[in-house]
């Protein structure tokens, strides 16, 4: 069993004059966000969030604005100091680090991509992409070489000597992504990285990210308020509301078993056929039963791709194979239709 790359344990963040004093009200008496604001004039940013983030996965943290998701991600590199709780990265307690250790952590182990790009306007694209390396103290030639590599990878070849102000939003965020990747850090923090882009460009950027992730296998924490984006990118999804964790699981879990009405409301408009996989429908065969003569499909086939073949299969059912090749069970068209309309 692998260890989680990042562990967040019972994290609290309260904004205000004396956060430590009001922390017990929230932690021990369970005071909510609105009540806390009214009674003590403190804002509850993060409320008892625990989250294990596994290596080489994209962990999406989703929530509407004000749900504390951007506050949460800033605790991972301690751009924000928590009021209570723990953050552990590769077994090391981030909150126990002094300034020097913290800088080393930020330089070598993680990088960040921002919603508003936050590029350095006075530096060229090449210099922006090489920024993290320059901070690390890498030599000039090495910076130029590695920056060029990432500029090429995000498709900005030819723009090396332009300034960020000359580029469109989508291109600027490619620079942001290249800057984040150039340091070769294990962890990539993406704070609503694609939210400021228009839908088509956002879709492009998601594709670039997925493509890169396929070969880089980084641990990515991705913040978004967009459910479609969360479902498309996330290996795991955590949903926050008012600073508290409402539900975590993979996309299918959340769509098939929403924890409460808040999430049910969230998912009501999505295309379920794109999320639900045959795995969720598979019913094991009776012991001793011979499998019927029908087509086999892998368990991770999405319903949108499976519906047509299922309708054409004899008896309108198919067999589902697990990732290890073992037979998981059978799935019928009527089950599929029910799953889509729950």
């Amino acid at each position: 069993m692998t260890e989680p790359k990042i562990q967040i344990k019972h994290l609290y963040k309260i904004f205000g004059k004396t956060p430590e004093k009001v922390l017990p009200l929230v932690r021990d008496e369970g005071m909510g966000k609105d009540e806390l604001l009214e009674k003590t004039n403190h804002v509850l940013g993060v409320n008892d969030v625990s989250l294990d983030i596994w290596p080489k996965q994209i962990q999406v943290v989703m929530g509407l604005s004000g749900s504390g998701k951007s506050t949460l991600i800033r605790h991972i590199n301690r751009l924000i100091e928590p009021t209570g709780g723990e953050v552990i990265i590769d077994g090391e307690d981030v909150l126990a680090m002094n300034q020097t250790q913290l800088r080393e952590l930020r330089r070598n182990k993680m990088s960040m991509v921002f919603q508003k790009f936050a590029l350095l306007p006075h530096r060229t694209i090449r210099e922006n992409v090489g920024y993290g390396l320059e901070i690390q103290g890498v030599g000039e030639d090495e910076i130029a070489r590695r920056a060029q590599h990432w500029i090429d990878r995000v498709g900005l070849t030819g723009y090396e000597d332009h300034y960020p102000g000359h580029l469109s939003g989508g291109m600027q965020q490619r620079v942001g992504l290249a800057r984040g990747l150039a340091t070769d850090a294990d962890i990539l923090l993406m704070d609503e990285a694609f939210s400021a882009l228009d839908p088509l460009i956002r879709f492009d950027m998601q594709s670039i990210l997925l493509e890169l992730q396929n070969e880089l296998h980084k641990t990515i924490v991705f913040i978004t308020h967009d459910l479609d984006e969360a479902l498309r990118l996330g290996d795991n999804i955590a949903i926050l509301r008012d600073g508290a964790m409402v539900q975590q699981g993979d996309a299918q879990d959340i769509v098939l078993h929403p924890a409460d009405d808040y999430i049910r409301d969230f998912i009501k408009d999505i295309n379920r056929a794109k999320v639900i996989q045959l795995r969720a429908l598979a019913k094991p065969l009776e012991p001793g039963e011979t499998p019927p003569e029908v087509p086999h499909f892998p368990a991770n086939t999405r319903l949108e791709d499976a519906l047509l073949p299922m309708s054409q299969a004899p008896g309108q059912e198919v067999l589902v194979d697990g990732t290890d090749g073992a037979l998981l069970g059978r799935a019928s068209l009527s089950d599929a239709i029910r799953a889509l309309h729950e």
Binding site: N77, L79, L102, R103, E104, L105, R106, R107, N108, S111, M112, F114, K116, A118, L119, L120, P121, Y131, G132, I135, Q136, R179, T183, L189
Partner: peptide, 14 residues
């Protein structure tokens, strides 16, 4: 711009 400064912080600038 505080966003740019935050980015510098996030990359571990002294």
């Amino acid at each position: 711009d505080p966003d740019v400064l935050e980015a510098a912080d996030a990359f571990g600038a002294s």
